[in-house]
């Protein structure tokens, strides 16, 4: 049986300790803590510029494992270098790339795609708060439809972000590597996926939806509930792609998902939404699930 079935299976030792500069209730930091519990102390964390970079502010750091940060767009390339250097030095270690959605979906996509295609052995976790968060909530290709960001604000001519989010985990799955989505609401599911990504020879990708009180606009304590609702409304599908085959992890069945309204209502970034906007989002989600239930994964006819 797979590891991490119960909360009691989570190791006691924290490799990420208290005293970071992250916002109270930060889902990104929670994800890093959980990933390190799976990977253990023999892990090098490679970071892309973003919120998690500021965990370590010279001369203090809450981390107990080696950590390297170089720039925003090159976490995967840096990890490739480390992997080869480890080989040259005859060492075996886990490498965890921990990068935000902007650094993964957008500016770092080339280096990530390169590393996945080359099959460089690493675990790549994208902590996805659906915006460029550290700069203060700007639009990224992970931003969901109609969400307000400071660069896609609603106004008389705008309903917020006009575009749908990019389906990164599918794109990574198309590279032929292990790819999965997860949510901080379900730590054990996430940890099992990190464990799979670790065992996978090559790049294992996990897209982790994290609660971001600061940029989504909610009370820190509501965070877990909100990302849980993202799963329970079907707006954040949980799936895995292995050897090009997609498995849906959670599907209560047709008509059984909560309405997306439940996910949208608690967050300031969706406060401007009209009934029509919500209906449109609901339609998109329903259509996506219709595809999945019909055994299709892409919204193209050729596939």
């Amino acid at each position: 049986m797979a590891k991490y079935q119960k909360f009691k299976d989570i190791p006691d030792e924290n490799l990420l300790e208290g005293g970071s500069f992250s916002c109270a209730g930060c889902g990104g930091e929670l994800g890093l803590k959980l990933a390190l519990k799976v990977l253990g102390e023999d892990t090098i964390v490679v970071n892309a510029s973003g919120c998690m970079t500021l965990l370590s502010n010279w001369p203090t750091s809450p981390l107990k494992v080696p950590f390297i940060h170089s720039a925003i767009e090159n976490a995967a390339s840096t990890a490739t270098g480390i992997r080869h250097a480890l080989k040259a030095l005859n060492r075996e270690m886990n490498i965890l790339c921990y990068a935000g959605d902007g650094a993964t979906y957008d500016i770092g996509f080339q280096s990530l795609s390169g590393a996945a295609s080359r099959g460089d052995d690493m675990v790549y976790v994208c902590y996805n708060n659906s915006c460029f968060g550290n700069t203060g909530n700007q639009w990224s290709t992970a931003t969901p439809k109609f969400a307000r960001t400071t660069t896609s604000p609603p106004g008389s001519e705008s309903h917020g972000n006009a575009l749908s989010r990019k389906d990164m985990a599918k794109i990574m799955g198309a590279h032929g590597c292990y790819s999965a989505t997860a949510s901080t609401a379900l730590p054990l599911d996430f940890m099992r996926k990190v464990e799979k990504a670790r065992k996978y020879k090559g790049l294992g990708f996990v897209d982790l939806l994290v609660n971001c009180p600061t940029n989504w606009g909610f009370e820190p304590k509501e965070g877990i509930d909100i990302v849980m609702k993202a799963v329970f409304t079907g707006i954040w599908p949980l799936y895995e792609v292995e050897n090009g085959m997609m498995t849906i992890n959670y599907d209560p069945g047709p008509g059984k998902f909560q309405p997306v309204k439940n996910f949208l209502k608690g967050q300031q970034r969706f406060r401007h939404l009209t009934k029509k906007d919500i209906a449109e989002i609901q339609k998109d989600v329903d259509k996506e699930w219709e595809l999945y239930r019909g055994g299709k994964y892409w919204q193209t006819d050729e596939y």
Binding site: V46, I68, S70, A71, N74, S77, T78, A79, T80, G81, I82, R83, H84, A85, L86, A88, L89, Q110, S111, G114
Partner: peptide
């Protein structure tokens, strides 16, 4: 990416 990897190699 080359220089990024070089940074990774040398830092290791």
């Amino acid at each position: 990416s080359v220089m990024s990897a070089a940074v990774g190699c040398s830092a290791t």
